[in-house]
Each structure stands twice: as structure tokens, then as C-alpha cells.
Simulated assay, not measured.
Amino acid sequence: MPRSTSAVSALQKLEAERKALDARQRDLESKAAQEVGEVILGTGLEAFSAKGLRQVAEALGKLGEAASIEKLGARPQARSAGVPKSPQD
């Protein structure tokens, strides 16, 4: 019988860990959204509708940073260290 009790305890511990990880993920997602929002403010994109902004962001994300900049005819700026160029990096 002690074996089943330890299995039950292990399951309870695992569930508690999952809940903690879910909370941590929600917190990090919120912080990431704030960081992205701060980058977007002042660029003119804040005037887009939420749906339009999502469509633009998804399309640019599929292209990757370099291809997006090239297609838009913009010139790449100096980048911060540690930021990947595209989803493939």
C-alpha cells in the first residue's frame, strides 16, 4: 500500500508544479506583450486595428526579419545583441 500512496503524492506534486509553471508562463507572456507593445508605440502601428495589426504581424513573422525589411524597402538598423533575426534563427 505505501507504493500507491507515494504515487498519489507524486501526482499531487506534479499537478502543483504544472500549476506553478502555468502561472509563470502567464506572467512571462504578459511581460513579453508589454515589451512588444513598448516597441510598437510611436511607430504608427498603434493606429492599426487589432485585427489588422495581427494580420501584419503574422505575415511579417512568416517572412522573417530580413525578408520583411527587404520587401518593405526599409533599411535595417543596428540590432540589439541576443535578438534573433527570424523565427529560423
Rank of each mutant, 00 (worst) to 15 (best):
L53A: 14
R24E: 09
E38N: 07
G42N: 07
E35T: 06
R54V: 11
G64L: 12
A23H: 12
E38C: 03
V36L: 05
I40R: 08
A23L: 12
E35V: 13
T43Q: 10
E17V: 07
A47G: 10
R54H: 14
L41C: 06
G42A: 03
K51S: 12
Q25D: 04
A50L: 13
A23I: 08
A32I: 00
A33D: 01
L63E: 10
K62G: 15
A59W: 11
A57W: 09
R54C: 12
A33H: 00
L53D: 07
A59H: 07
A16K: 08
V39W: 05
G52Y: 04
E17H: 02
R54P: 03
R26G: 00
E29S: 02
Q25S: 04
K19M: 07
L41R: 08
I40V: 14
L41W: 06
L60N: 12
G37A: 01
L28G: 03
Q34L: 03
A50Y: 11
G61I: 10
L21V: 11
A20W: 02
A57D: 12
A59D: 14
K19H: 04
E17P: 05
K62Q: 15
Q34M: 03
L41S: 07
E17D: 13
F48G: 04
K19A: 06
V36I: 09
F48R: 06
A33P: 00
S30N: 04
E38W: 05
E58G: 11
A32H: 00
E15S: 00
L28A: 05
A50T: 12
A23K: 14
I40M: 09
L63I: 11
A16V: 10
I40H: 03
K62S: 15
G42L: 04
A57N: 15
L63D: 13
K62E: 15
G64Q: 08
L28E: 08
K62I: 15
L45G: 14
L63P: 04
G37Y: 02
L41A: 08
Q55E: 15
G52V: 04
S49C: 12
K19Y: 01
V36S: 03
L14T: 03
A16Y: 02
S49H: 08
K31Q: 09
D27T: 11
E38Y: 02
A16D: 05
Q55N: 12
L14V: 04
E35K: 09
G42H: 04
T43K: 07
A23F: 10
L21Y: 10
G61M: 14
G42Y: 04
A33K: 01
S49T: 15
Q25N: 04
G44N: 02
E58T: 14
V56L: 15
E38H: 05
A47L: 11
S49L: 10
R54G: 11
S49Y: 06
E46Q: 15
K62M: 15
K31H: 04
A16F: 01
V39H: 09
Q55Y: 13
E15C: 00
L28T: 03
R18W: 05
I40P: 01
L28V: 05
A20N: 06
L41M: 11
A32N: 02
V36D: 02
V56P: 02
V36A: 08
G42S: 05
L63H: 11
A57C: 14
D27P: 04
G44H: 02
L14Q: 08
A59Q: 12
R26F: 05
E17C: 03
A23E: 12
